[in-house]
């Protein structure tokens, strides 16, 4: 079974995965969607870390350390960020033993979101410098059409040219709005993960 869901809060994601396991759905793989396998219902402990690895050897070493201490690595790749670990039985057990390292995963997530946002910044600057920061488009959609003298034409000639250019005009307006939506999304995700980091630093139970 596949499920699409999106979490920033690791704690909530862990709880959801435990609930799925209790209903007989075992997480097989995550990214970009959750793939579950039907299994006997159980009450495992599931914990998520957030790490990227430069070298394959580092990733193997990391997984070995967890596996040696009883945590099965169920999903995650060198570059996936999210690393899922499972331990049989609902122990009061964690992959972190202090507040700072427990909060650290949110810090690493926030840093990653921030760097993706920074990668998007040139698009914003180019849009501003070209004066194409979509607001003009919304106020005056006519500017999306580049055909010379289009708005002075009339009748069949106008409609022919107008309909011909409409897909291109929409693409001009639309591709811009996708970039803007992504930029806003990454800003929000950076802020959210930063807030979760601050909360985790002040909370001993998260």
């Amino acid at each position: 079974m596949k499920k699409i869901k999106f979490f920033i809060d690791f704690h909530k994601e862990e709880q959801w995965l435990v609930k799925m396991a209790a209903q007989g759905w075992q997480l097989k793989k995550q990214g970009p969607v959750y793939t579950f396998e039907s299994a006997a219902p159980e009450q495992p402990t599931i914990k998520i870390d957030y790490r990227h690895f430069k070298k394959q050897a580092d990733f193997i070493e990391y997984r070995s350390l967890f596996e040696d201490s009883g945590w099965q690595h169920i999903s995650g790749t060198k570059h996936s960020g999210n690393q899922y670990f499972k331990r049989k039985g609902a122990y009061d057990d964690d992959i972190f033993s202090d507040t700072a390292s427990r909060a650290g995963r949110y810090k690493r997530l926030a840093d990653m979101m921030l760097s993706i946002f920074i990668l998007f910044l040139p698009i914003v600057f180019i849009s501003i410098s070209k004066g194409t920061l979509g607001i003009d488009y919304l106020l005056n959609p006519k500017t999306l059409y580049f055909t010379p003298g289009l708005w002075e034409m009339s009748g069949a000639k106008f409609w022919g040219r107008f309909l011909f250019e409409t897909p291109f005009a929409l693409m001009r307006g639309f591709s811009w709005s996708i970039s803007l939506a992504l930029i806003i999304l990454y800003v929000l995700m950076t802020i959210k993960s930063w807030l979760l980091y601050r909360k985790a630093m002040n909370d001993d139970d998260v």
Partner: peptide, 11 residues
């Protein structure tokens, strides 16, 4: 001092 895997890896 009982270190969990994730904490030890970070350290």
């Amino acid at each position: 001092v009982r270190l969990a895997a994730g904490t030890l890896y970070g350290a």
